[in-house]
Each structure stands twice: as structure tokens, then as C-alpha cells.
């Protein structure tokens, strides 16, 4: 399973990449693998406010459904418009093509709560 070194992670199996004050969020290889074939992705509206730890979307496979929790608080700048029509991208390219939302961070204080790749790998080991 693939966990790129340059990303941050959460225990809810999201990945986060940070550029300036914008965070790009998706779900990890581990998450897509445990869900199985992803068939549906629901994302928040552009302009809406998301809050750390609260669900902002849903990802569904044939027989499972999972909330996507926002790892950080802020405003949704952009969503991946491709995903609703091609949810299978979540399986084939979780870290690239299947990015989900870009969030303009309300504050950088929450970044400290994220896991680095080693911490996330250790967390996945226990699952």
C-alpha cells in the first residue's frame, strides 16, 4: 500500500497536502482499499464552511458508506468536479486524480493535529 512521504494524514484515513494557506484533501490508499469499488462521492458546495472533525462529504462503495471528515477548518475553495461522474478514480488514483476538496485554512493552528507518514503507517498497522 502506498503512503506518499510528502503528505499529512488523519486517523479517519484522509490525506492532506498543504500549499501556503490552502489544503488539498482526499482519502488514502488504505481507505479506498477497505471500501472496495467506489461508486459514489458526494462533496460539499464551493464556498461552504467546513469544520475540523465534522463530516463534509460521503464516499460509497457497493456495500459500504463512509463519511469524509474534514481534517481542518476553513472555506471550500474548489471541489473535484470529475469525481461525481467518475468515482472509480478514488480506487485508481487516490492521491492524484481523486483529490476531493481544496480548503482555504481558517488558521494554521490545526496543522499540528495531523499525522506524518510514519505516524499514519503505524496507525494503519494496528487496524
Amino acid at each position: 500500500m502506498d503512503f506518499p512521504n510528502h503528505l499529512f494524514y488523519t486517523e479517519e484515513h484522509e490525506w492532506i497536502s498543504i500549499e501556503a494557506d490552502v489544503a488539498t484533501v482526499g482519502i488514502t490508499d488504505f481507505a479506498q482499499d477497505s471500501l472496495g469499488d467506489v461508486v459514489f462521492v458526494e462533496l460539499p458546495e464551493v464556498g461552504s464552511q467546513v469544520e475540523s472533525g465534522k463530516p463534509f462529504g460521503v464516499v460509497e462503495s457497493v456495500k459500504a458508506v463512509s463519511d469524509i471528515y474534514s481534517p481542518l477548518s476553513g472555506e471550500v475553495l474548489e471541489i473535484n468536479e470529475e469525481l461525481p461522474d467518475t468515482p472509480e478514480l478514488v480506487n485508481s488514483s487516490p492521491y492524484e486524480d481523486a483529490w476531493m476538496v481544496k480548503i482555504k485554512l481558517a488558521s494554521k493552528d490545526e496543522l499540528g493535529d495531523l499525522l506524518d507518514v510514519e505516524a499514519y503507517k503505524a496507525f494503519v498497522e494496528q487496524q
Binding site: 459514489f40 460509497e60 462503495s61 457497493v62 456495500k63 459500504a64 458508506v65
Partner: peptide
């Protein structure tokens, strides 16, 4: 579309 239903959700 069974994810709408009680046995999953």
C-alpha cells in the same frame, strides 16, 4: 444503491 438502506446505513 443499497447504501441508502438500513442494513448498511
Amino acid at each position: 444503491l443499497a447504501t441508502r438502506e438500513q442494513h448498511i446505513r
